[in-house]
Simulated scan of single mutants.
Amino acid sequence: MRSFGSWLSAPLSCFPHWFALWYLKAVLVTMERHCMSTRLFVSHSWSYSERYIAMVNLLNNRPYFTFSNYSVPETKAFGPMAAHKMKDELRGQINPVHCVIIIGGMWANHSDWIKFEMDYAKSINKPILGVRPRGAQMMPLAVSNASNMVVNWTADSIVAGIRTIT
């Protein structure tokens, strides 16, 4: 029987076939996770977009994390529309994403729309990441309850949270 140390210097042909396949799959999954763009929806309001912009900038500047933003920014805001049309637009933005991000501090001003976004995300089994605003100790209970995970406002915490729940 070979010692563990001798396996480390052995050519790949010496490894059992199942181990080589398992190892290759593990490497590919890791590469895919780090190279693939994660599709995100960040809940926000066009009239209070500073936290949204800060969140997008935070994620854009995080090394080894790429994402596609499915949220519609203020610069591309829709014109006035009926509530049912706005819900259709939000559904279209949430459907293709891997994760929905809810910034906790937005709850007080926009609870009806955020509740709709959270309820819809849950109804189609999309994970929700709650993010505590900078310096906040508390999160709105509705956001905490709907979230798969709640993290602090740091790039590392947010990215780790996204990777954990997706």
Rank of each mutant, 00 (worst) to 15 (best):
R2E: 05
G5E: 11
S6M: 05
S6L: 04
P11M: 05
L12M: 12
F15M: 14
P16D: 02
H17N: 15
H17D: 13
W18K: 09
W18A: 11
A20Y: 04
L21M: 13
L21Y: 12
Y23F: 15
A26C: 15
V27M: 05
L28K: 11
L28G: 09
R33G: 00
R33K: 05
C35E: 05
M36N: 06
M36F: 07
T38F: 05
L40N: 00
V42S: 05
S43G: 06
H44W: 05
W46I: 09
W46Q: 04
S47F: 09
Y48I: 07
S49L: 05
E50P: 13
E50I: 12
Y52P: 13
Y52E: 13
Y52C: 10
I53Q: 01
A54N: 08
M55I: 03
M55H: 03
V56G: 03
N57P: 06
N57D: 06
L58C: 09
L59E: 01
L59C: 05
N61K: 07
R62Q: 12
R62N: 10
F65E: 04
F65A: 06
F67E: 05
F67D: 03
F67W: 05
F67Y: 03
F67H: 04
N69P: 12
N69D: 14
Y70C: 09
Y70Q: 08
S71V: 04
P73H: 01
E74I: 11
T75Y: 04
T75P: 14
K76T: 11
P80Q: 01
M81C: 13
A82Q: 08
K85Q: 14
M86V: 03
M86C: 09
E89L: 10
E89P: 04
R91F: 08
G92H: 13
G92W: 02
Q93R: 15
N95H: 13
P96H: 13
V97F: 00
V97E: 00
H98A: 14
H98E: 10
H98L: 15
C99W: 07
C99Y: 06
I101G: 02
I102R: 06
G104K: 08
G105K: 10
M106T: 15
W107C: 11
A108L: 12
N109R: 12
N109G: 15
H110F: 12
S111E: 07
E117K: 01
M118P: 09
M118T: 03
A121G: 09
S123W: 11
I124R: 04
I128R: 01
I128E: 02
G130K: 06
V131C: 05
R132P: 13
P133V: 07
R134I: 03
G135V: 13
G135T: 12
A136L: 13
A136E: 10
A136N: 07
Q137R: 14
M138F: 15
P140A: 08
L141P: 15
N145L: 14
S147V: 00
S147Q: 01
M149S: 01
M149F: 00
V151Q: 06
N152R: 10
W153K: 13
W153Q: 10
T154V: 10
A155T: 00
A155G: 01
A160D: 15
A160H: 12
G161K: 00
G161S: 03
G161H: 01
I162G: 02
R163D: 08
R163M: 09
I165R: 07
